[in-house]
Amino acid sequence: MRAVITVVGKDTVGILAKVSQKCAESNVNINEVTQSVLEDIFCMIMVADISKINKDFGAFSEEMKKMGCDLGMSVHVMHETIFNSMHRI
């Protein structure tokens, strides 16, 4: 089972570190990362394996969102299924 984590907002120091830290704490393995900085807008998309997650997925998603708020970024965690079903036949 994989989740997609998106992080969008103003670029600051340590965004990637903080997000990865949170993933590691929750035993979520990051498979892929793409990131771009356009002017000073930071946009990162991670695909992560959540099959061994050590807490409730909802709680993990909530924590990430809250951390995003603290950083002034918008963070979303969603199951990969929604993207697959919407964009693939």
């Binding site: 997609v4 998106t6 892929e32 793409t34 946009c43 998309i45 695909v47 990969e80 993207f83 697959n84 919407m86 964009h87 693939r88």
Partner: peptide, 8 residues
């Protein structure tokens, strides 16, 4: 693999 555009 789902691309960035689709995710956003």
């Amino acid at each position: 693999m789902i691309n960035t555009h689709e995710i956003l």
